[in-house]
Design a protein around this nucleic acid. Structure first.
Length: 623
DNA sequence: GTAGGGTTAG
């Protein structure tokens, strides 16, 4: 039986990796163990393997895996049984034999899963796995699909550079990178919000003379939608048609969702209606299509229309799914219709669907917003009773809910509990806690929390740094804020507009007008500024009593109105407050009239507190 | 491979 192992297919591996060169005609000790192991595996007598597994050598393992290459289920079972043993850890190439076997069986999910384990639990680098895959190619049937699977394993574990490294290396070694692999990587870039890099990689791919397939085109549509470039997205669609590529419902859904998020619901509806015509009768709307529209209308508060779409959906024989209900329920909740939301949830249950964590999360969130702590407690215990596992959203919602209802300490305790139970936590949750700690002037607590993130291997994101910076700015600790800013830049995180605005606000509050101006000039140079920037600086001028400068800035905002910098009700409040403190009622009234003519509407609070009394005063004077 | 729920600025 050993002779079979010397087929041309296997020889390569033996020559390279195994100590088979003893040239002995008598079977070695390893041979004897090998055949015993194989017999026991065939008979599924695991006890023998279990006893032996800690002493299996690399070469023996490779031989065993090769032996069972053509019985992938058995192979997988063997691998799983000895997976925790050190031998497996040392023997990346034998693991790759299993991966190849899975790919040969078209069991890609298992292959991806195995490689994720190699990288996540066993700590191999993507390029090490790649090398081992290439080395074992000669003993396994060559299939490029293993590379696709490796790239998928990388993107699924968030190893962006790992995935890109594999693509680069494959190209260098003259292996073919499939369009699927490129698409997978491009899709990953979009998922993590790297739209700029998406376009770079796309251009790179095109420069190697690849042809886009329908999935690539869909990704282009998605990317343009992310950038709110709807007309470009639609033109991609037509470019695809011209190439003779048959569109699918996914591309349409991306367009429709894009239109919804760009607030163009009319276009979204038009696309839904024209789907058939635009695709030559091939594509018709599915549940996702309707869900996108329902979501669009729910977010706009147009619940009646959302409900009509649900009815239409049923009429067209498209079955509403859990997401349909989740979207509608959230829509009702965010518009204050708690009763309706509960009723809808009941309908859903009656139709045979079981509420999931998303639905519970919506309820919990909005009940917290209403301050209904008792209701939340009931819902959470109901969730536990039904064995619905809370996810990281649930945790964040609870933390934020506790904080917003004034129980910051409870939220911190809740967080400690999560840590203790080793439950999911993420930067998001920390951002909430850091924010609320800062709000109650506990910047040192916030800092501790930030440090604890590093200890537990959680990477603070832009928002974490932004929240810390804002906290220090609000506390008037501008130097510390600046230090956090430098730390952030040091770890390669780019500051964003929110962070600049926070810093600016801090400078304005301490009336460092020169610094503020300097910062704003810098922001303008890199084209990172918005209405908040102007309003903040305006507030700074007013605080410093620089009314002339304030008005000049106000005028320039009017001029720049086309750039989304038109004065808004915050501008209004800032100026009006400042002017009324300085006692010049007539200016206030003039400004008020002007802004109202410009379509700026004061919020009622401002109006009641400031404008209304002044107008009354003036009215008295004229009596 | 598209759809739902949670952070940040005046």
């Amino acid at each position: 039986m050993f002779l079979g192992l010397f087929s041309s297919k296997s020889r390569n591996l033996f020559v390279r990796g195994l100590h088979f060169a003893k040239q002995s005609t008598r079977p070695s000790a390893e041979d004897i163990i090998f055949s015993a192991v194989c017999v026991n595996i065939r008979q599924k007598k695991w006890k023998f393997l279990d006893q032996l597994s800690s002493s299996l050598t690399n070469s023996l393992l490779s031989r065993v895996f090769l032996e069972f290459q053509s019985s992938p289920q058995l192979l997988l079972e063997v691998y799983r049984r000895i997976g925790g043993q050190k031998a497996i850890l040392d023997s990346l190439e034998s693991c790759c034999i299993v991966v190849h076997a899975m790919v040969d069986q078209r069991n890609y999910d298992e292959a991806v899963c195995l490689m994720k384990e190699l990288m996540m639990s066993k700590g191999y680098l993507s390029l090490e796995v790649l090398e081992a895959l290439i080395n074992s190619l000669s003993v396994c049937s060559p299939s490029n699909a293993v590379f696709d699977a490796l790239i998928r394993a990388c993107t699924q574990t968030g190893a962006t550079e790992g995935a890109y490294g594999v693509i680069k290396k494959l190209r260098m070694e003259n292996y073919w990178v499939s369009i699927h692999a490129w698409n997978n990587f491009l899709n990953h870039l979009l998922k993590i919000g790297e739209v700029r890099r998406f376009w770079m990689v796309y251009r790179e791919m095109i420069s190697y003379e690849y042809y886009e397939n329908v999935n690539t085109f869909n990704l282009l549509i998605y990317a343009f939608c992310e950038e709110c470039k709807l007309s470009e997205a639609i033109s991609v669609f037509y470019r695809m048609l011209k190439r003779g590529i048959v569109p699918n419902v996914i591309g349409f859904n991306m367009l429709i969702n894009g239109a919804c998020s760009a607030d163009d619901l009319d276009l979204a509806v038009k696309l839904l209606e024209k789907m058939g015509a635009m695709s030559g009768g091939i594509v018709s709307p599915n549940a996702v299509t309707y869900n996108c529209l329902i979501n669009g209308y729910c977010k706009k508060g147009k619940l009646e229309i959302a409900k009509r779409i649900l009815a239409k959906m049923i009429e067209m024989d498209v079955k509403p799914n859990i997401r349909t209900y989740a979207t509608l329920i959230d829509g009702y909740l965010r518009n204050g219709y708690l009763e309706e939301a509960f009723r809808l949830c009941n309908n859903m249950v009656e139709s045979g669907l079981i509420p999931n964590a998303v639905i519970y999360n919506s309820f919990v969130h909005w009940l917290y917003v209403e301050g209904d702590i008792g209701g939340v407690a009931l819902l959470l215990s109901d969730m536990m009773l039904k064995y619905i596992t809370p996810d990281r959203f649930t945790h964040s919602i609870i933390a934020k809910g506790l904080c917003r209802n004034g129980h910051v300490n409870e939220a911190i305790k809740f967080h400690s509990w999560l840590v203790e139970k080793n439950l999911m936590e993420d930067a998001f949750l920390h951002n909430i806690l850091i924010n609320y700690l800062c709000r109650i002037n506990n910047t040192s607590g916030a800092k501790q929390l930030l440090c604890s993130m590093f200890v537990r291997g959680l990477i603070p994101d832009q928002v974490t740094y932004g929240t810390m910076i804002n906290g220090y700015c609000k506390a008037g600790e501008m130097e510390t804020a600046a230090k956090v800013y430098t730390d952030m830049v040091k770890v390669g995180k780019n500051p964003n507009l929110v962070i600049f605005n926070s810093l600016l606000d801090g400078l304005c509050k301490e009336e460092s007008i020169d610094c503020s101006r300097f910062l704003v000039d810098g922001m303008k140079r890199i084209n990172m500024y918005d209405a908040v920037t102007y309003n903040t600086l305006l507030d700074g001028y007013c605080r410093a009593g620089m009314i002339k400068e304030a008005f000049e800035l106000f005028t320039s905002m009017r001029k720049a109105g086309f750039l989304d910098l038109a004065p808004d009700f915050i501008t209004y409040t800032t100026l009006v407050t400042s002017l009324s403190n300085k006692g010049s009622s007539e200016e206030v009234v003039k400004l008020h009239d002007y802004l109202v003519l410009q379509g700026v509407i004061p919020d009622s609070q401002t109006y009641e507190a400031i404008v209304s009394p002044i107008i009354k005063d003036l009215a008295h004077e004229f009596e």
